[in-house]
Write a protein that binds this DNA or RNA. Structure first.
Length: 118
DNA sequence: GAAATGACGCGTT
DNA sequence: GAACGCGCCATTT
């Protein structure tokens, strides 16, 4: 049937990219989308996580570009994500993660390797 | 087919 | 750094 959701290949790439984020590290929606070969589809990544059914998917490592938790402060998802991040050694203050800045730039290159650079 | 919605991003103020 | 506004993408009503 029918292609109900977005292309399965795109979804697979996104999920694979998320899974590639190592323990204790964080990444942004747009970052994931870009690495998955879907620039500008940050929202698609969010939608995927919203409907994700995979408990093994490290969704808690995905944050906004500002390094902030995407959930509204005080909500269940917010607390859950913050709790999980801290459990991995990630410092979360006021719903904001303290570190992406230094790694954000290096992250995609450092973890997954040089993409459009050198 | 138009309008509304949402785990987003970026530039401005 | 926070608040605002506009743009972008995909699904739903």
């Amino acid at each position: 049937m029918a292609a109900l959701s977005a292309d399965a290949s795109a979804v697979a790439r996104i999920l694979a990219t998320i899974r590639d984020v190592p323990h204790g590290a964080v990444a942004g929606y747009g970052q994931i989308a870009r690495r998955a070969g879907l620039p500008g589809r940050a929202r698609m990544v969010a939608r995927l996580l919203a409907g994700n059914d995979d408990p093994t998917l490290p969704w808690h490592r995905i944050l906004r570009s500002d390094g902030r938790i995407a959930f509204p402060p005080g909500s269940k998802g917010y607390l859950e994500q913050a709790r999980r991040l801290r459990a991995e050694g990630v410092a979360v203050v006021n719903g904001r993660v303290r570190m992406p800045r230094l790694e954000a730039d290096d992250l995609d290159a450092a973890l997954w390797g040089p993409l459009g650079k050198p």
